[in-house]
C-alpha cells in the first residue's frame, strides 16, 4: 500500500492504494471519476485516455504510483462550468457519439491531437492519429468531422484568450 498524491482536474487529492493499482482504477474507484472507462485489457481501445501533465495517455497502462506528483485531467475536468470544451461541443454537434462509452477517451485523445497539430489537420491525419481509440458505433465518420470542426473552434477560442 502507498499513499498517492496527485492533482486531478485542478484539485490536490490523495489516496491509499495497493501498489498494483492502475491510474484508471484510482480515478474510478477512489475518486469516483467514472467518466474514464475501461474497454480492453491490451492498451488498445483508448476508452481510458486521460491527460497526464498535458499529454493524452492510457490510464489503464499507468500505475497510480507512476502518476504521483502529476497533473491529471479527466473528461470531468475539461469544461468550464456549464461551458463545454470546444471538443465536447463538436462531438455533440456533429453526432460524433452514439453509446457514449468510447467518447471520453475519444475526446481526450482528440484534444491532444489538435494541441499537437493545431490548425494543420486534415481528414487523413485525424484518422491516423485516432489509431489508439476504438469506436464500435459511429464508423468514425462523424468523429473525424467533429475533430476537424473542433480544431477550428479551438483555434478561435485560443485566439480569443
Amino acid at each position: 500500500m502507498s499513499t498517492i498524491k496527485l492533482t486531478v482536474n485542478g484539485k490536490a487529492v490523495s489516496a491509499d492504494v495497493e501498489d498494483r493499482t492502475l491510474l484508471v482504477h484510482l480515478l474510478r474507484e477512489n475518486l469516483n471519476l467514472t467518466g474514464t472507462h475501461v474497454g480492453c485489457d491490451t492498451s488498445q481501445c483508448g476508452a481510458c485516455v486521460v491527460h497526464i501533465d498535458g499529454r493524452a495517455v492510457k490510464s489503464c497502462t499507468v500505475l497510480a504510483g507512476q502518476a504521483a506528483g502529476s497533473n491529471v485531467t479527466t473528461i470531468e475536468g475539461i469544461s468550464k462550468g456549464d461551458e463545454l470544451h470546444p471538443m465536447q461541443a463538436a462531438f455533440r454537434d456533429n453526432h460524433g457519439l452514439q453509446c457514449g462509452y468510447c467518447t471520453p477517451g475519444m475526446i481526450m485523445s482528440s484534444i491532444d491531437i489538435v494541441n499537437r497539430h493545431g490548425g494543420k489537420l486534415d481528414e487523413e491525419t485525424v484518422r491516423q492519429e485516432l489509431e489508439g481509440n476504438i469506436c464500435r458505433c459511429t464508423g468514425y465518420h462523424n468523429i473525424v468531422k467533429a475533430v476537424l470542426d473542433a480544431a477550428g473552434r479551438m483555434k478561435v477560442s485560443q485566439a480569443a484568450e
Partner: peptide
C-alpha cells in the same frame, strides 16, 4: 510505434 498515447510513454 503503437499509437499517440503509447508514444508519449
Amino acid at each position: 510505434i503503437g499509437d499517440p498515447a503509447v508514444r508519449y510513454r
